[in-house]
Lab assay of single mutants.
Amino acid sequence: HNLTITQGKLFFHYNPKLCLSEIHKMEEVSGTKGRQERNDIALKTNGDQASCENELLKFSYIRTSFDKILLRWEPYWPPDFRDLLGFMLFYKEAPYQNVTEFDGQDACGSNSWTVVDIDPPLRSNDPKSQNHPGWLMRGLKPWTQYAIFVKTLVTFSDERRTYGAKSDIIYVQTDATNPSVPLDPISVSNSSSQIILKWKPPSDPNGNITHYLVFWERQAEDSELFELDYCLKGLKLPSRTWSPPFESEDSQKHNQSEYEDSAGECCSCPKTDSQILKELEESSFRKTFEDYLHNVVFVPRKTSSGTGAEDPRPSRKRRSLGDVGNVTVAVPTVAAFPNTSSTSVPTSPEEHRPFEKVVNKESLVISGLRHFTGYRIELQACNQDTPEERCSVAAYVSARTMPEAKADDIVGPVTHEIFENNVVHLMWQEPKEPNGLIVLYEVSYRRYGDEELHLCVSRKHFALERGCRLRGLSPGNYSVRIRATSLAGNGSWTEPTYFYVTDYLDVPSNIA
């Protein structure tokens, strides 16, 4: 807008934040220059609390790290170098490059900038070799853009010569660093050979998330399962459950009422301010606690030095998902009996873990797994792929695949051998790939016309006998059925096997 004052003059007093240069501009645009008398524009009460600059400061050096910015700028000295009290560095987070010096300023003089007072450097006698002032900004957020400017702080001049310097606002972004852990990993099994893994992005990506790394490792069953005799009275049979499938998407929606109208769909109840505040506090606490764990609990591995020492970490090797089922080394339970199943799973520490690289999504279907087997899954978020990966501390989750139908069934015939004193040795093959492992066998036998009897055969007993022995049988026709019990439950009964026990007292003698 054009402003013209045809008559009258300007009068400025007691404006401590208004620089004289701005008042002189007002004289020019209003056409009143030359009308004012000496005392109409006070030299001592206008701009006496402001830094009124008329020179431009330029930054000469900028260096960044993930949490620091090192700045240096060209030296500046007023005509009387004693008038320079120091520099004021202003900075704040700036997602967009549209910041002005006066953003967030209120009537009390406060604003949204963080201000650092910096002492002037030592003055050199040689004007050509003056030290460049600077400042190291610490405690910054990774991968965050900051708006920065600097200006001088000078003393009051009796001659009211307006001098000083100020830089333009520059924008500097800190470097990326390792992201925080992925949030809320959930693993479920939808079949006997697959596990579905879902997660949420890290709360602090500290860069642009480029991919996720998912490692999985087959877990050995508890050692007590191999040692305890679950045929003993009072000892509860062990059981394991597989990871249940995901709930429906509708039930997972946030901010939804727990109660549904019987007449149909209901609208979600909005969260109160107290609920939102509580969630923010919980989120802040979780982030602080995660940072504490990362800094205190997890110790970084030592990389190899120039002395030739090897990095103890196993090298990563990509495998196809079809090879995942046989990740671990199978060892027989008892070496003397080769027909026992290889369900003991000690994992070799030198073995390469299978892994998958996930790009542009937060889910993965891990296939080719062994049925009813526990897996430990390790999830890392990465925001750099080359020249070397920059990934987060791992988040861990466990899951067990679903049982395989008929995996616990005894394959092959049940054979028998009759000894003296009416002892019958029953023999059968253990299931080759049971659900988890076989903890015991149930032997059901009966003599024709009598009630059915049951015998429990422990895992250890089966390994020693290759089956079991029935003792003290009365003469007669017998039928026997056997079924295995694994961590997933009972298998199917075998087809009945028949044998006849004679009275050993009636056996004919070869003595003449």
Results as ranks from 00 to 15, higher is better:
460 K>D: 09
354 P>N: 12
221 E>L: 11
482 I>E: 00
276 I>N: 07
359 V>Q: 11
281 E>H: 12
281 E>K: 05
326 N>G: 03
432 K>C: 10
266 C>Y: 03
263 A>Q: 12
371 H>L: 07
383 N>I: 07
447 R>N: 11
386 T>H: 09
416 H>S: 10
206 N>L: 01
368 G>M: 07
204 D>M: 06
318 R>P: 13
228 L>N: 07
483 R>P: 00
445 Y>D: 00
499 F>M: 15
499 F>V: 12
266 C>M: 02
251 S>F: 11
233 K>V: 14
343 T>K: 12
400 R>D: 01
293 L>G: 03
217 E>V: 07
317 K>I: 12
369 L>G: 08
385 D>S: 00
223 S>L: 09
510 N>Q: 09
290 E>L: 01
317 K>R: 11
271 K>G: 02
220 A>C: 15
249 E>V: 10
499 F>R: 01
323 D>G: 04
486 S>D: 02
494 T>D: 02
323 D>S: 07
334 V>L: 12
390 R>F: 04
453 L>C: 03
440 L>S: 03
325 G>T: 15
480 V>C: 09
332 P>V: 07
509 S>Y: 15
361 K>Y: 12
285 F>N: 02
452 E>Y: 06
489 G>H: 06
410 I>H: 15
304 S>Y: 08
209 I>R: 14
436 G>M: 15
395 A>D: 09
221 E>K: 14
395 A>N: 10
358 V>K: 06
488 A>P: 02
222 D>R: 13
247 E>L: 12
290 E>M: 02
338 P>C: 08
395 A>Y: 14
398 S>K: 12
216 W>L: 12
501 V>I: 04
374 G>L: 10
463 A>K: 07
235 L>G: 04
483 R>K: 12
349 P>T: 14
357 K>W: 03
368 G>L: 10
456 C>R: 02
339 N>K: 10
505 L>G: 10
423 V>Q: 14
418 I>M: 02
455 L>M: 13
398 S>E: 01
343 T>E: 06
374 G>M: 05
260 E>T: 11
423 V>R: 13
319 R>I: 06
243 S>H: 12
335 A>Q: 09
318 R>M: 11
351 E>R: 14
227 E>I: 08
452 E>N: 15
205 P>F: 10
425 H>C: 04
406 K>T: 10
218 R>W: 15
323 D>A: 09
391 C>N: 01
259 Y>R: 13
490 N>D: 03
412 G>D: 09
491 G>H: 05
277 L>N: 12
453 L>R: 03
483 R>M: 13
206 N>Y: 01
